[in-house]
Computed example of a mutant assay.
Amino acid sequence: MLNIDRRILAHFDYVTLMLIIPIVFLSGWLIYEIHPVLGQKHLTYVSVGFGVFVTLFLLPIRRMFWMIPIFYWGSIILLVAVEFIGHSRLGAKRWIEIPFIHFTLQPSELLKPAFVLMLAYLIHRNPPPHDGYRIKDFMKLSFFIVLPFLLIAKEPDLGTATVLVLLGFGILFIVGVHWKVWVGLSVAFVISLPLIYSNLHDYQKQRLTDFVGEKSSYHVEQSIIAIGSGGFFGKAKEDATQTQMKFLPIASSDFIFAYVVERFGFFGAFVLISLYAALIVHLLFLSTWTTDYYTKVVSGGLSLLVFIYMSVNIAMTMGLAPVVGVPLPMFSYGGSSFVNFMVLFAVMENLIAYRFRYLYDNVGKKSFV
C-alpha cells in the first residue's frame, strides 16, 4: 500500500478542501432534487473529479513541467481541428467526435488547465522585473492569451473565450505589469469596441439587445421570479414551483443559482456566496504569500476563475449580465467544468505540499514517524 511522508500532508492546504466540499455537497443535493437521473450522473462526475484530484496530487508534478508546452500546443491543435472535423450542435462547432467509441471532446474545456499552466511556465521562466512587465514581454505573453481566444470565439463560443481572456490578463495583473501598459491596453479596447460589436454573430447581438432592453428574455424572467419567490428562508421542495413545474429553464446548470434562492431564500444565497468569497480570498492569499511563480499563477488563476464564473453566472440569473452559458463553478451540472477545476486544484495542492524537493524522495516509501 502506498504510504506518503507525513511531512507532505503537513503542508497540504486543508482550508481549500474544507471550502470546496460543502459547495459540492449542496450542488449534488439540489441537482438530485431537480432531476434524480442527472443527480446520479453528477455524482459520477464528482467521483471522477476527486479521483483525478488524488491521482494528480500523488504525481511528481514539478518534475513534469517540461510537458506543459506539449499540453498547451496539443490543445491548440485540437481547437484548430474543430474547424475542419468538428461536430456542430445548435449552430456552434465546438466538439470533436472520437471514432468508434461515440465520445465527443470539447477542446475549449481541455484548454483551460493547459492555459493556466502555460502562463505559469512562461512567467516562471521569465519573471517580471520589480516594476512589472514592459510592453515587449507583455506582448509575448499576450500571444498565448489571444491565440486561444480567437480560436474559441470563432466556434463561436464567446462566453468561454471571454472568460479565458479575462483570466489571462487577470493573471498578468496579479503577477505585475507596468501601469503604462494597462493604460494603453484600456484605450485600445475602448477604441475597438465598435469593431468588436460589428463582428458578433446575430444571436450574440440579440443577447446584448435583450440585456439592455426593457423586457428581459424568458429565461431571465423565470429566473427572477424564482429568486423573488424564495423570500428570506426559501421554500420546501414541493413548494418550489418555478423549478418543480419546469417554468425555470436549465435549472440544473446555467440557472441553478435561481433554484438555490427559491429553495433556501436570501439566507441560502448568502451562505453560498460567502463560501465562494472565502475560497476566492483564500486563494488570493496563497498567491500573494508565495514567491514561487508556479504556485502564484495557479492559485491566483484559480481565484480569478472562480470569481469570474461565479459573478457572471449569478449576475446572469438576476438579469444583470447577458446570458452567456457560464456555469456556477463546481456547482452547475456537468462533468468537464468540474474535472477542470479539480485538475487545477490538484496541481495547486501538489505545488504547495511538495514545495520542498526532498519530499519527493519519500513518496512511495515508508512514512517518517
Results as ranks from 00 to 15, higher is better:
residue 34 I to F: 11
residue 48 V to N: 05
residue 73 W to G: 02
residue 71 F to R: 00
residue 322 P to T: 04
residue 121 Y to R: 02
residue 240 A to P: 02
residue 74 G to K: 00
residue 167 L to E: 06
residue 315 A to L: 15
residue 115 F to G: 00
residue 213 G to F: 06
residue 286 L to A: 03
residue 282 H to D: 10
residue 197 Y to V: 11
residue 1 M to S: 15
residue 267 F to S: 13
residue 297 V to N: 03
residue 162 T to G: 07
residue 89 R to E: 15
residue 229 S to P: 03
residue 365 K to D: 13
residue 276 Y to M: 04
residue 342 M to S: 03
residue 263 R to S: 06
residue 164 L to R: 03
residue 36 P to W: 12
residue 209 T to Y: 13
residue 106 Q to A: 12
residue 366 K to N: 11
residue 120 A to V: 00
residue 92 A to S: 06
residue 354 Y to E: 06
residue 82 V to Y: 02
residue 6 R to C: 08
residue 10 A to L: 13
residue 63 R to V: 05
residue 347 V to R: 01
residue 5 D to N: 15
residue 83 E to D: 09
residue 351 L to I: 07
residue 224 I to V: 15
residue 335 G to W: 11
residue 141 L to V: 00
residue 162 T to V: 14
residue 12 F to E: 00
residue 143 F to D: 06
residue 278 A to I: 03
residue 135 I to W: 14
residue 73 W to C: 03
residue 176 G to N: 01
residue 134 R to H: 14
residue 219 H to N: 14
residue 355 R to D: 02
residue 307 F to E: 03
residue 4 I to H: 13
residue 218 Y to T: 07
residue 288 T to N: 14
residue 246 K to M: 13
residue 240 A to E: 09
residue 202 D to V: 06
residue 241 T to Y: 15
residue 248 L to N: 04
residue 246 K to E: 14
residue 192 S to T: 12
residue 283 L to I: 07
residue 201 H to V: 00
residue 38 L to G: 04
residue 338 F to V: 08
residue 216 S to V: 12
residue 307 F to H: 01
residue 312 V to N: 05
residue 99 P to F: 05
residue 296 K to P: 02
residue 75 S to N: 12
residue 72 Y to V: 01
residue 169 F to C: 01
residue 49 G to N: 04
residue 16 T to I: 13
residue 224 I to P: 09
residue 58 L to N: 04
residue 147 L to Y: 09
residue 118 M to I: 05
residue 331 F to R: 07
residue 252 S to Q: 12
residue 53 F to Y: 15
residue 231 G to N: 10
residue 284 L to H: 08
residue 101 I to Q: 08
residue 26 L to C: 09
residue 366 K to M: 12
residue 246 K to P: 00
residue 15 V to Q: 14
residue 264 F to Y: 08
residue 133 Y to D: 01
residue 246 K to R: 15
residue 187 V to S: 14
residue 360 Y to A: 03
residue 114 A to K: 03
residue 267 F to L: 12
residue 37 V to W: 12
residue 330 M to I: 14
residue 269 A to C: 07
residue 123 I to F: 03
residue 38 L to K: 10
residue 318 M to K: 10
residue 88 S to C: 09
residue 64 M to C: 11
residue 10 A to S: 13
residue 187 V to M: 14
residue 298 V to G: 00
residue 305 L to H: 01
